[in-house]
Simulated scan of single mutants.
Amino acid sequence: MDLKLKVSSYYPSLTKSEQKVADYVLGASESIMYRSVTELADLSGVGETTVMRFCRAIGFKGYQDFKLALAQDYSPHRQAREGSPEAGEDDGGYPALVHRELASILADTMDLLDRTRLDEAVRRIHEAGYVQLFGVGTSGLTALDAKNRLLRIGLRAEAATDAHIQAMMAVTMGPGDVAVGISLSGSTLDTVDLLAKARQQGAYIIAITNYAKSPITAEADLVLLTAGKESPLEGGSIGAKMSQLLVIDLICEGLARYDLPRTREMRERMAKAVIERIY
Score class of each variant (00 low, 15 high):
T49G: 02
F66E: 02
G83C: 11
F66R: 02
Y74N: 08
R81M: 13
R81E: 13
V51W: 04
Q64V: 03
M52W: 00
E86T: 14
P85V: 13
L70A: 15
I58W: 00
P95R: 04
L97A: 15
D65G: 09
L97S: 09
A87Q: 04
F66G: 09
P95S: 07
G62I: 01
R56A: 06
Q72C: 02
R56I: 01
E82C: 03
P85D: 05
R78L: 14
R56H: 12
Y74F: 15
Q79R: 12
D73T: 05
H77D: 08
A80K: 15
E89L: 07
A71C: 04
D90S: 11
L97C: 09
E82D: 10
G92C: 06
Q79E: 13
R81N: 04
A57Q: 04
F66T: 03
G59Q: 10
A87W: 02
F60P: 12
F66W: 09
R53P: 00
D65T: 07
T49R: 13
D73E: 13
A71T: 02
L97V: 03
P76R: 03
I58T: 02
G88R: 01
M52T: 08
G62A: 09
R81C: 02
F66L: 09
P76T: 04
A69D: 05
Y94C: 08
Q79G: 00
V51D: 02
P76N: 03
Q79Y: 10
V98L: 15
F60D: 06
I58H: 01
A87M: 07
E82Y: 11
E82A: 03
V98K: 09
P76E: 01
A69F: 00
E82H: 06
G92W: 06
A69Q: 05
P95T: 05
S75Y: 10
T50R: 01
C55H: 03
G88F: 02
E86Y: 11
Y63G: 10
P95V: 07
Q72K: 14
Y74R: 11
E89A: 13
C55I: 01
G62F: 00
A87S: 15
F54I: 08
Y74V: 13
L97E: 12
T50S: 08
P85N: 09
G88T: 02
E86A: 14
K67Y: 00
P95E: 05
L68M: 11
